[in-house]
Simulated assay, not measured.
Amino acid sequence: MIGRLRVFKETLAGAGALRSTIKDQLSFLASHLGTSGDKFHDILAQTHSVQFEDKTGICLGMNWIIDKEKGVIWHNGGTGGYSSFIGFNKEKQSGVVILSNYAPSFSKKDSLDHIGFNILEKLCSNEL
Rank of each mutant, 00 (worst) to 15 (best):
K39E: 14
T47Y: 05
H41N: 14
H48K: 12
D38I: 09
H48P: 02
M62E: 11
D67I: 04
S36Q: 06
L44M: 09
I43D: 10
E53F: 02
T56A: 12
D38W: 10
D54Q: 05
K39V: 10
W64I: 00
L60E: 10
C59S: 15
V50R: 06
T56I: 10
T35V: 12
I58L: 14
C59V: 05
L44G: 01
K68T: 12
N63Q: 15
T35M: 07
L60V: 13
I65R: 15
F40W: 14
K39P: 05
W64P: 00
D67N: 15
D67E: 13
D67Y: 07
H48V: 05
L44P: 01
G34N: 05
A45M: 08
F52R: 12
W64Q: 01
H48F: 12
T56M: 09
N63K: 13
C59T: 09
L60G: 07
N63T: 14
L60T: 11
T56S: 15
D67G: 02
H48C: 07
E53I: 08
V50H: 06
K55V: 13
T56H: 10
I65F: 15
S49K: 11
E53S: 13
G34R: 01
I43V: 13
F52P: 00
G34I: 02
K68G: 01
F52I: 03
K55R: 08
G61Q: 02
G37D: 11
I66R: 00
F52M: 09
K68W: 04
K55W: 08
W64N: 00
Q46E: 14
G34H: 05
F40G: 00
K68V: 06
H48T: 11
G61E: 03
D38F: 09
K55N: 07
G61V: 00
T56Q: 12
T35R: 05
T35A: 02
G37E: 12
D54N: 15
D38K: 08
W64H: 02
F52G: 00
N63M: 13
D54R: 05
D67M: 03
S36C: 03
T35Y: 05
K68L: 05
D54W: 06
H41V: 01
G57C: 04
D42T: 15
Q51F: 06
L60K: 14
A45R: 12
I58T: 13
F40R: 12
D54S: 02
D42H: 13
S36V: 05
K55H: 08
T47N: 09
L44V: 02
G34L: 02
G37S: 09
H41D: 05
I43G: 02
I43K: 11
H48G: 06
A45F: 05
D54E: 08
A45K: 13
T47I: 03
F40K: 11
C59R: 11
G57R: 05
T47W: 04
K55D: 10
D42L: 11
F52S: 07
K55S: 10
G61M: 00
N63L: 13
C59G: 04
G37M: 07
I58R: 15
D38T: 15
I65L: 13
D38R: 07
H41Q: 07
K55L: 10
